[in-house]
Amino acid sequence: MDALIEKLKGQIIEQLNLAEVKPEEINPDSPLFGEGLGLDSIDALELIVLLEKHYGIKIQDPKDGKTIFQSLRTMAEYIKSQGKS
């Protein structure tokens, strides 16, 4: 799980162009939206594409996004649960 979290950190920094953020600064349990990384709705779309592009996961129900993208750890757990890590 830790390896997947580290991998996700790098992918998120690249996809969202978070040039000012270092991977070690991202707390895997902090919220991705609002507080924590302070992401917004456009970033949510970027994360959906990230999951599809890198892990082959298509989120069918947009309502699931709220749970999946709660934190880096919930994202990693979701990827694991889909058997795509």
């Binding site: 996809q15 456009i42 779309l45 970027e46 594409v49 599809e52 592009k53």
Partner: peptide, 12 residues
Amino acid sequence: NDEQFLTPTSFI
């Protein structure tokens, strides 16, 4: 990406 995985940011 063969017309897939298009992100919104650069389009916007």
